[in-house]
């Protein structure tokens, strides 16, 4: 008995090593570009394009970061981006409400509505560029962040996930609240939304990432530089010949690090959220 157990344990340990080594290797491959990015952002320009490349800078300099905030308007872009993230979270609420509507109320037309939402997952963004611009422009919203947030405010993927989760909320729970005289809105906020916490966290993170990185719409819909985001600001640095890689890397690092930290802090909830989401 003990011998089989110890043998099983030994086999498991071998298995763990067999899995852990390639798994770690793969993770390092995934992470390598970021190490490279951060390293190059603190190199001098000459060193960043020298060959053979050196992973670590021989001479540290934060000139590129200083340049981002002095010569370029990165502080402003950062604030815009944060505001866009906040607006994205408003969109998250609309997304959750739609998921709830599709999950907990029946009706043929509603079913078609859900189908229409799913349809939009299939459209490449390039198709929608001009019509979307015209709509936002017609609404007179091209000069503020609300207009820029509008086209991506509701994600079809998000509606789908919320519906999948909320469909499992027992109707009896909602029914009981109705009998107690609670309004539909109150039921949603007091019962459905708290139960959906795991999926809220998942969708919340995905929303934050998407808003933080958004590029196409801020670019197209901004009628002035006042509403540029970090991504657009970073692409201002793209020139055919005279690009400065260190500044670009610094900008890229600046954009990526907050998200990495956020994910690291929230990741346990995220995996749990997906587990509860009904996709399994």
């Amino acid at each position: 008995m003990t011998s089989t157990r110890s043998r099983r344990k030994a086999r498991e340990r071998v298995g763990t090593v067999l899995i852990a080594v390639p798994l770690t290797l793969g993770a390092l491959i995934c992470a390598l570009p970021f190490v490279w990015m951060v390293a190059n952002s603190v190199k001098t320009r000459a060193e960043a394009v020298s060959y053979p490349p050196q992973l670590l800078p021989s001479q540290w300099t934060f000139a590129a970061y200083v340049k981002l905030f002095t010569e370029l308007d990165f502080l402003h872009y950062t604030l815009n981006t944060v505001a866009l993230v906040a607006l994205g979270l408003v969109g998250l609420l609309l997304t959750a409400m739609a998921g709830y509507g599709f999950a907990k109320f029946k009706g043929r037309a509603l079913g078609w509505g859900f189908f229409a939402v799913l349809m939009t997952m299939m459209i490449p963004a390039q198709v929608t560029m001009i019509p979307t611009y015209l709509v936002v422009n017609a609404a007179g919203l091209t000069n503020n962040l609300v207009g820029i947030a509008l086209p991506t405010l509701v994600s079809a993927f998000g509606v789908f996930l919320f519906r999948q989760f909320m469909i499992t909320i027992p109707d009896s729970l909602l029914e009981a609240a109705r009998i107690d005289g609670a309004s539909e809105l109150r039921i949603f906020f007091a019962i459905a939304l708290p139960i959906s916490r795991p999926i809220l966290i998942v969708q919340g993170l995905l929303t934050v990432i998407a808003s933080w990185n958004s590029f196409l719409w801020p670019l197209i819909l901004s009628s002035s530089q006042r509403t540029y985001t970090l991504s657009v600001g970073l692409s201002l640095l793209n020139k055919q010949i005279t690009t400065d890689p260190t500044v670009q890397m610094a900008g890229a690092a600046l954009m990526t690090l907050p998200i990495i930290v956020l994910f690291f802090l929230a990741q346990r909830h995220i995996v749990a959220g997906f587990t509860m989401s009904g996709i399994k």
């Binding site: 609309l94 709830y100 509603l110 939402v117 019509p131 979307t132 509701v154 079809a156």
Partner: peptide, 19 residues
């Protein structure tokens, strides 16, 4: 149900289906 889905549906219709 429509009340809950409507804001999202309007956005989807305008920015997803109309294009």
């Amino acid at each position: 149900g429509w009340g809950f889905a409507l804001p999202a549906l309007v956005l989807v219709a305008v920015f997803g289906l109309m294009p």
